[in-house]
Amino acid sequence: MTKVIATLIAGLFATAAFAQTPATAPAAPAVVKAEAKETKAVAKAEAKETKAEIKAEAKSAKVEAEAKKDVAVAKADEKSDKADAHAKASKTKAKAHAKAEKAEAAATPAPVVTK
């Protein structure tokens, strides 16, 4: 009988210990709420980081496009300068040729006609 009573008393204490565990259950929503808040903060930080990366990529692409545009403008200017130089050289050559012909004509006396 003593063993039966001891078992009943031990069982009573065990159920009392297990019965008290639901008292910590109200703390669980606070933990869940904190975890949700933390998850939200992490998601927000990741979104900010992604946004910054996209912004940096767009800026880089813009700078690259401007550089390509500058190169194209420089090439066009170079072609224009080359064409101007070619035209100037042709004009100078034509002038020199005309001057040489004029000098040659002046140096050669007119043929004398005898009657």
Rank of each mutant, 00 (worst) to 15 (best):
Lys95His: 09
Ala85Cys: 06
Thr24Ala: 14
Thr114Gly: 06
Ala105Trp: 10
Pro22His: 01
Thr2Asn: 11
Leu8Gln: 05
Ala89Leu: 09
Ala30Lys: 10
Ala6Pro: 00
Pro29Ala: 04
Pro111Gly: 08
Val112Arg: 11
Thr21Phe: 10
Lys51Arg: 15
Thr108Ser: 09
Glu46Thr: 02
Ala14Arg: 00
Ala94Ile: 14
Gln20His: 11
Ala110Phe: 11
Thr114Arg: 10
Ala105Cys: 06
Lys115Gln: 15
Leu8Val: 09
Val4Met: 05
Gly11Met: 02
Lys44Phe: 01
Met1Arg: 01
Lys37Leu: 05
Ala47His: 02
Ala103Ser: 14
Ala105Arg: 11
Glu53Ala: 15
Ala47Pro: 00
Lys48Arg: 14
Lys44Asp: 08
Lys51Val: 05
Ala30Cys: 03
Ala6Asp: 15
Val4Gln: 07
Ala83Pro: 00
Gln20Asn: 15
Ala107Tyr: 01
Lys3Arg: 12
Gln20Glu: 14
Ile54Trp: 04
Pro26Lys: 06
Lys79Val: 05
Glu35Asn: 08
Pro22Leu: 01
Ala100Ser: 12
Pro22Asp: 03
Asp81Ala: 13
Glu53Thr: 12
Ala103Cys: 09
Ala85Pro: 04
Thr15Asp: 04
Ala10His: 01
Ile5Asn: 10
Ala106Pro: 00
Ser80Trp: 10
Ala14Thr: 02
Ala30Pro: 00
Ala103Trp: 06
Thr92Trp: 14
Lys51Pro: 00
Ala28Gln: 12
Ser80Tyr: 13
His97Ile: 13
Ala23Ile: 07
Glu53Ser: 11
Ala100Gln: 11
Val42Leu: 11
Ala45Phe: 01
Glu104Pro: 00
Thr108Leu: 11
Ala74Leu: 15
Ala105Lys: 12
Thr108Val: 08
His97Tyr: 12
Ala10Ile: 01
Ala23Asn: 08
Lys62Ile: 13
Ala47Ile: 01
Ala94Leu: 13
Val31Trp: 01
Lys82Leu: 06
Asp77Gly: 09
Ala67Ile: 06
Thr50Ala: 14
Ala72Thr: 00
Ile54Tyr: 05
Ala56Gln: 04
Ala96Pro: 00
Ala27Tyr: 15
Asp81Asn: 08
Val32Leu: 02
Val113Ser: 13
Lys82Arg: 13
Ala45His: 02
Lys75Gly: 03
Ala94Lys: 14
Ile54Ala: 14
Ala16Glu: 08
Val73Cys: 12
Ala76Leu: 08
Ala106Asp: 06
Val31His: 03
Ala16Lys: 07
Ser60Leu: 13
Lys95Asp: 10
Pro111Thr: 06
